[in-house]
Simulated scan of single mutants.
Amino acid sequence: MSISARLAEKGIDLPDASAPAANYVPYVQVGDILYVSGQISMNADGLVTGKVGADLTVEEGAAAAKLCGLSLLAQVKAACGGDMDRLVRVVKLTGFVNSTPDFTDQPKVINGCSDFLVEALGDGGRHARSAVSAGALPLGVAVEIEGIFQIK
């Protein structure tokens, strides 16, 4: 099944790819590798902010990470000229969690993105990953995730 068909079957609507907020580009392609800049936790109502372990639960953090996953795929779609079927696989994610100093469940938070990508893409969504704590993230967002993808 094509990626486009799989997304449609699962009722996954990707948001529009957001424009960069500073002096950087949203993605860079080198050969068949696509590097996508960090995507922050944001939904239709705006930014999802807060510190996991104080303001947000692990589950709320994971939901914020899923939003980052949607934005990552939106950037991939933009980089592929709208053709999601050019996506071969997710190679690696680096997830940053705005969390308290004693919070140690960053992997459980970033699972929100990882689980979503596997659900959306099947085996092509499986990836290498890092999940790290951050004392603060831009605009106070809960999660930021960058990704490396293979495209054709």
Rank of each mutant, 00 (worst) to 15 (best):
M42V: 15
M84Y: 04
D105W: 04
S18Y: 08
S130T: 14
G125Q: 10
V28G: 03
L70A: 06
Q39L: 00
L47I: 09
L56S: 06
R89W: 02
A64C: 11
C68D: 06
V109C: 05
L93G: 04
P101W: 04
V88R: 10
A44P: 01
S18K: 14
N43K: 05
S99C: 15
L117S: 12
A19Q: 14
V30K: 14
G50D: 11
L87E: 04
L72Y: 02
R86P: 00
G61S: 10
T57I: 06
E119A: 10
L117A: 05
S130R: 05
D13L: 12
G46L: 11
T57C: 08
A74K: 07
D13H: 11
K51H: 02
D32K: 13
E60D: 13
D55M: 11
A8G: 07
K77Q: 15
V118E: 15
G82D: 06
Q75A: 14
I40W: 00
T104E: 13
L56N: 09
V25D: 08
G135Y: 06
Y27W: 13
T49H: 04
R89H: 00
S18F: 04
A54E: 14
P107N: 11
A8N: 13
E119G: 11
Q39W: 01
I12N: 03
D55N: 15
Q106A: 11
A63Y: 06
K10V: 01
T100V: 11
G112V: 10
G46V: 09
S71I: 01
G61E: 10
A128D: 14
T94M: 00
G81F: 03
Q75Y: 02
K66D: 08
N23C: 03
T100C: 06
V36I: 07
A22K: 10
G31Q: 06
P15F: 11
A19S: 13
G122P: 09
S41K: 05
C80N: 11
L47F: 12
T57A: 09
N98I: 10
T49F: 00
G95T: 06
L121C: 05
A64S: 12
L73W: 04
M84F: 05
I33R: 14
D83N: 15
D85K: 03
V58N: 11
V25C: 03
V97L: 10
P15C: 12
A63E: 12
K108R: 12
G31A: 08
P15L: 10
M42S: 12
G61A: 10
E59V: 13
L87W: 04
L47V: 11
L34G: 05
G53R: 09
D102A: 14
D45Q: 15
V109K: 07
D13E: 15
V88H: 05
K77P: 02
E60A: 13
D83S: 09
S41W: 01
V25N: 02
R126D: 10
A63H: 05
D85Q: 04
Q75K: 06
R129E: 11
L121F: 04
Y24Q: 09
G69A: 07
Q106L: 00
A64L: 08
A134Q: 15
S130V: 02
T104D: 12
L93Y: 07
N111M: 13
S133F: 03
P20G: 04
C68P: 01
A78T: 06
N111G: 04
Y35M: 07
